[in-house]
């Protein structure tokens, strides 16, 4: 598995996929605190009246605005890019005809697929942690205070949501025959779970899409710990089920 991981990282590096996620995280880590800090001044400049008074008056920016700006900016773009990159990674060997040569070697199919997932997940985690460090520093410079533990929690919880999207991508990559179909279905999963994220009834309260709500609750200190734990547990369970069926399908797959 270690060897497979090594070559999956080489693949991510040589095809520049390694750089996509850190680049996005770093850009938003810099831009979000800046936007949060100066949004009022920007709006005042753009909407001021002839006498110089602003049309819209917003409350003074707080550190919570910086967190909220970072998470909302980052999540959408990260998840959308994540859908397409992950499906491409899970399907490329199959679609390009590389699999017969790969699997003619002593490579366990389960390890092969898990290695791809692990390498991608590590890239995501590292990207979010790097983004988190830069964001922490930027926020501290602009707002004079920052909660490092909270940023770490945000990064870890969001990583889990991205891994859930990867689980869906892996699932559809095994159960469909082409990149477009797998990407569309994974994207639908992302949209559907995002919509479910707006509901607060029964099990819907704990579905993976609610993880972004849980992060907002953490930022504004309004949520309950048990709700957060249950959302994490259910996200992990759904992801594991998706991984299980993906691996089962791949192990039964006739090239």
């Amino acid at each position: 598995m270690i060897k497979l991981l090594k070559y999956d990282f080489i693949y991510l590096w040589k095809t520049y996929k390694f750089l996509i996620f850190p680049a996005i995280a770093v850009i938003f880590a810099f831009a979000s605190p800046l936007t949060a800090k100066y949004i009022n001044e920007l709006l005042a400049l753009l909407t001021s009246t002839a006498t110089g008074d602003p049309l819209i008056v917003l409350p003074e920016p707080t550190i919570q605005d910086s967190y909220a700006q970072y998470t909302s900016n980052l999540y959408e773009i990260f998840l959308i890019v994540g859908v397409f990159v992950s499906v491409s990674i899970f399907m490329s060997d199959k679609n390009k005809g590389l699999l017969p040569l790969i699997l003619s070697k002593p490579i366990n199919r389960t390890k092969y697929l898990l290695s791809k997932l692990s390498s991608l997940s590590v890239v995501i985690l590292v990207s979010l942690l790097v983004g988190g460090i830069i964001f922490t520093y930027s926020t501290w410079v602009l707002f004079d205070s920052v909660d490092v533990v909270l940023v770490l929690w945000i990064s870890l919880i969001f990583s889990l949501y991205v891994v859930f999207i990867f689980a869906a991508a892996m699932f559809f990559s095994q159960y469909t025959k082409n990149y477009a179909t797998a990407s569309i279905l994974t994207f639908i999963v992302y949209i559907v779970f995002s919509i479910f994220g707006g509901f607060e009834k029964g099990i819907l309260e704990y579905l993976p899409g609610r993880l972004t709500v849980r992060i907002t609750e953490l930022v504004f200190e309004i949520g309950e710990a048990s709700t957060l734990v249950w959302t994490i547990v259910i996200t992990i369970v759904i992801s594991v089920v998706l991984f299980y069926f993906s691996l089962r399908k791949f192990n039964k797959y006739d090239l």
Binding site: Y11, K14, T15, K96, G97, L98, P100, L101, S104, K105, P106, I107, N108, N251
Partner: peptide
């Protein structure tokens, strides 16, 4: 599910495909 026996085999396909970046 066994992989070790493949160490004894060298396989040449009809149309080999390799990773393009290597």
């Amino acid at each position: 599910t066994e992989q070790n026996y493949k160490k004894k085999i060298g396989y040449v396909p009809d149309v080999p495909v390799f990773p393009s970046y290597m």
